[in-house]
Nucleic acid binder design. Structure first.
Lengths: 337, 337
DNA sequence: GTGAAAGCGCTAACAG
DNA sequence: CTGTTAGCGCTTTCAC
């Protein structure tokens, strides 16, 4: 059985290719009679029109590419993992292929994926704040894009973000409500807006309780598990002013901090409580299971796809901020009351 | 700036489209002179030929799809995660797009991804043993495929597999060498060949030491963390014949078993040692970090892509078995000697 | 309501 | 060595 074309179908149904095309695309202009004849043949032969000819005709690839950076791929960061699921699920509704690509770095210079160089993608989804130079390259090619999980608050592109200030506020407030008064913070600062949001949320929550915060309680140099470990070390160094709880702005940081706390002979949560942020897969596996603020990553992914499709269709697409204050109680926080 | 075509380039260089096509595809039949002229224009305009017209002409989509089942996606199973990385990396060499898809189940019946239904993929990579009915559907469409991480030993399709019998042997042998004599096994049995391989490797290793194995030391009903927990429970029930070590044929099982061991008040590794299999991301994060047999998943992925491309090009492609005896020593095994 | 024909951008067969 | 041309499968305009 060789590949069928619209012509073959037309011949079999005794009509013109035009008629078949009309039927396939649910267009008016065919009599009910021919429509039925065509439909029958299509059914019988299980005919599917060739996508490649549509691609050529419409100058569309029906591809949407997911662009992943070295350090923020679903493969390096479990966070993006979940987002990808949302994108994938939603893409089914619109008939786009989800193509995985990554940005390689050739001594410091970003190399765009082939699929973008060749204009072989109808739209791009970036994970995490993406350098303007990279975005410019995509803009120059007139390819619509959406950035998922941005922190910067500039609004000159379409984004899907979480409100991390709210997350930080919620986490810190929760600790206060559990009777904690001495609450430290471990955070990253390589994305300035993220840092700002987290610290603002954190201090706002503490403002209400009027607790003074020694400077070494705010550690902003976390980048991964190891550096977060170091941050925790810096906090524990001051034995005279130990906190009773730490909010870590990232579950990965929380995991590093927990290791450090345990290695120093303290117990979680009886000595020191820990709250994370993100709710990555790992968090329920660590010891003790981590209480954390969940970010609805699946939803972020599915919204991102939705926005992107809208942009591809030439519609406007406002940025979106998703719910960011869902607390998942597990076992890493002690109730002091 | 509107989209350039090969015709435009030809006009700009003062030659025919054919000449440009030849240059683009490194074909002989153009004078060095014209070649240079064309090359120059291409360089200057950063011209990229339209992939969609090639797609139509060659009846090729340049897509390779990764087909993921509900329970064996990189998203549900960290194991496949790493394989995907290998696939992605290798795909760059051949210029294929890696498209993510999954198999949905409509009350028990598998629904093939659209990309296969539409013949919009040049090849398929399946993760884990895939039902013959699904493979048949793909074969019927003459789409080449490769199955990664099969256990069944039938050889009627191209596969990439690990030698789990060797893994089991290596793990068990290692425990013996550390002085353990009472070694239990937790394993799954829903893939019969996997079960067989694991048990064979395990018993072969123990044969050499001539230790009798009480039947309750072999638990074959693990399917995930929870069921593995139950398996461990079954082992611990017999307080008169506790093993000093457990080999879990899957890190996920090991994690479940470890939870069980701890909940029963035993300590790892001083009371009971644990060895896993797979070396998934989680394994270094658990407490204590898990000693395990690593499977080179990245390599499996990259080999799978290589084989698939060969099949797409009409060449033959033998199945491949990758190295499966690399032991990663962490902290979950006690040295009894 | 229907069908013929042009054309999307490229490659390759063919004639010059 | 070079250029003209047909055609991949589809949609859409335009006569009929």
């Amino acid at each position: 059985m060789q590949k069928l074309t619209i012509k073959d179908i037309a011949a079999m149904a005794g009509v013109s290719p035009t008629a078949v095309s009309f039927v396939l695309n649910d267009k008016s202009g065919v009599s009910e009679d021919t429509r039925q004849k065509v439909l029958e043949v299509i059914q019988k032969t299980n005919f599917k029109p060739n996508l490649n000819s549509k691609r050529l005709l419409f100058q569309k690839s029906f591809n949407i590419s997911l662009v992943i950076k070295q350090n923020s791929s679903p493969f390096h960061d479990l966070f993006y993992f979940e987002i990808t699921k949302g994108v994938l699920e939603k893409s089914k509704e619109y008939g786009y292929n989800i193509v995985f690509t990554d940005i390689a770095f050739d001594n410091g210079k970003a190399v765009l994926p082939e699929i973008i160089e060749h204009n072989d993608t109808d739209g791009v989804i970036f994970f995490q704040d993406t350098e303007p130079t990279i975005r410019n390259e995509v803009e120059k090619r007139n390819i619509p894009y959406v950035v998922v999980d941005v922190h910067s608050s500039s609004e000159d592109f379409t984004y899907v973000r979480a409100d991390y200030q709210l997350s930080a506020y919620t986490a810190t407030r929760y600790l206060c409500e559990k009777g904690h008064q001495a609450i430290a913070l471990i955070c990253s600062s390589f994305i300035p807006d993220f840092y700002l949001n987290i610290v603002t949320g954190y201090t706002n929550a503490l403002k209400e309780t009027n607790t003074p915060i020694p400077p070494h309680w705010i550690q902003a140099d976390a980048m991964d598990e190891q550096t977060a470990y170091q941050c925790m070390e810096n906090i524990l160094k001051h034995k005279d002013s130990l906190p009773t709880a730490v909010f870590c702005a990232g579950d990965v940081y929380a995991i590093g901090a927990m290791k450090c706390i345990k290695n120093h002979g303290y117990h979680i949560p009886s000595d020191i409580s820990v709250v994370g942020l993100d709710d990555i897969l790992l968090s329920s596996y660590v010891e003790p299971p981590l209480t954390t603020i969940a970010i609805d990553k699946f939803h972020m992914g599915s919204e991102a796809l939705e926005l992107l499709v809208r942009k591809i269709n030439g519609e406007s697409a406002q940025g979106i901020t998703v719910q960011s204050d869902l607390l998942i109680e597990r076992a890493s926080v002690r109730n002091c009351l």
